[in-house]
Amino acid sequence: MYNFTILERMVLESINKGDKGLYEIVEDTGLEQKVCENVLYSLMAKGLIKISGTKYIISDNLSEGIIAELKNQLNMTVEINTLVRECVKSSLMEGEDSFKFKKVYMSESDKKFLKGMLYNLESFLDGLKNNKGATKEETFIFWGGENYAKAVNKYIS
């Protein structure tokens, strides 16, 4: 498996917004130049991007194997886990505001009320989908919830 990482996804997303040269990618992603060079090397070696003139572009003919690797659920779980874990760490260890966690008992009507609020949140975020801006300025948002016992039992099973 290719093990697509958060760095490769970020660089690929940046190029996907428009063909870019190295310095434009550095500017758009906020990553160090050396890191960008290493990521670009890896993406090129895998055939995900190529050079056209002075720009990096997404390859037109990605093989089905590569696409399957990019969509691999185990890999995506680890990718998302990496980002969420970072927020949990910042919040619990550095007192930042990037992760909120509550454990409460909810009646059926409370659950319905929450569902309505989450629906509104999702609609609001969907409305922002077409906003354009630098990759480094994007914000990721996550929400969800699970029954306490179900989560614990799933974890230990």
Partner: peptide, 11 residues
Amino acid sequence: NHIVKLKQFTG
């Protein structure tokens, strides 16, 4: 694999 690869990217 992710940790190793990220460390390679960051040098």
